[in-house]
Amino acid sequence: MLRIENLSAWYGEAQVLRDAGLHVDPGEVVTLVGRNGAGKSTLLRCVMGLHTGWRGTVELGGTALGNLSADRRARLGLGWVPDDRGSYATLTVTENLTLPPTVGPDPWSLERVYEAFPALYQRRNSAATTLSGGEQQMLALARVLRMGARMLLCDEPTEGLAPLLVQQVGDLLREAKRHGVTVLLVEQNLRFATSVADRHYLLAEGRVTAAMENSEVRSRERELLSYLGI
């Protein structure tokens, strides 16, 4: 579904990705773990077409994305859940959900979103930034599901969430997977990662240095946690 090869990226002179490569097969949930500043968000921004200084190959469903603009990429089925949750202060909750066009064959309806998240329904006419952090996270996830995106790029969706909400994010991702959605998930919480994902990549100093199965992550948990500095 998604294939990244020899991806390098720069901020001015500073190189943050160095020939990074990974792939996510259709229907898979794959996480990308790495220390703070390793370049995880930058990698997602490159896939989304939002980063300017880059080189390499990014393919979605077998076609190279090249210099395609971010909006064209989204309409090909990429759904970005940014690390800051991407809530609009000047849009209501409903508008935040209905702003993007539907891009996939199986978009969630607004009714379905509100059935799944009664808290969002109750606040549907409020500015999205007045929601709690957890509600804003659900909103960001619900938004890409309502688009019908086939390939989600989720940037630390559990960061700062209470355990119950972390579980809810997990349920949502598992349900998306059941419906054939593919997910690349940036995640620091290894327990959560192994509970939702099929495979894992480790990003270190801009390179993908390890590809791990769930069992390997579980057995190396201590080592990985101390490496990640958590």
Binding site: G49, L50, A70, R73, A74, R75, G86, Y88, A89, L99
Partner: peptide
């Protein structure tokens, strides 16, 4: 409010 995010959500 957020031009970049808006493009990333599929709006030209």
């Amino acid at each position: 409010e957020r031009p970049e995010l808006t493009r990333a959500l599929g709006i030209n």
